[in-house]
């Protein structure tokens, strides 16, 4: 965003506000904390918005949102949420012969995510919840794309293994 195309703050919020909130909430896994990190992002934007070196406001905001959310995540780590009976898992496990409905699958994944290493968890959430590409995630995290691919793939394999263990006879499939 150079001086000639700088947009008013209200327009920046309108254009990028949903993305900032989506990214922060994905990383933190919680809407309230996501809103806190998004607020940090916009406050930082207010400090830097006249900086002529910002040539891609959306990308800049996305990187700052990721940074603010990870900072908050590390300052106040979420408490691990073991999978409690009757909480996130289907009442009796997947019904015999039935597939997990999408909601159950998502609940299952959400319950399992705290068990993943932080790097895998953040990449998985940014990909599946914030809908970023792995290339965008690599850029935002300052990591090489192959590294991000490995984090994401290993998260997927581990989650699939958990799902298999949860449904040992493959009744989810």
């Amino acid at each position: 965003m150079n001086a000639s195309e700088r947009m008013p703050p209200e327009a920046a919020l309108s254009a990028h506000g949903p993305m900032v909130l989506r990214v922060c909430t994905a990383i933190l896994g919680d809407r309230e904390r996501g809103a806190d990190a998004a607020q940090d992002t916009w406050l930082r934007y207010l400090r830097f918005k006249d900086d002529n070196s910002i040539d891609n406001l959306g990308g800049w905001l996305r990187r700052v949102a990721v940074a603010c959310a990870i900072d908050l995540l590390r300052r106040e780590p979420p408490t691990a949420q073991p999978l409690e009976a009757g909480e996130s898992r289907p009442a009796q496990g997947p019904d015999q012969g039935q597939v997990l409905v999408a909601r159950e699958l998502a609940d299952f994944v959400r319950a399992q995510l705290p068990r993943l290493p932080e790097s895998q968890r953040i990449v998985f959430r940014l990909k599946t919840e914030a809908e970023l590409s792995l290339a965008e995630i690599a850029e935002d995290l300052g990591l090489a794309l192959p590294t991000v691919k490995t984090h994401f793939a290993r998260a997927c394999v581990r989650l699939q293994a958990s799902l298999r263990a949860f449904s040992p006879e493959g009744t989810h499939s």
Partner: peptide
């Protein structure tokens, strides 16, 4: 890109008030 999260955690109201 998938969007299952939006089905799980509707953000619209939160986003509106936050915005």
């Amino acid at each position: 890109a998938p969007a299952w999260r939006r089905r799980l955690a509707p953000l619209a109201a939160c986003a509106a008030s936050f915005a």
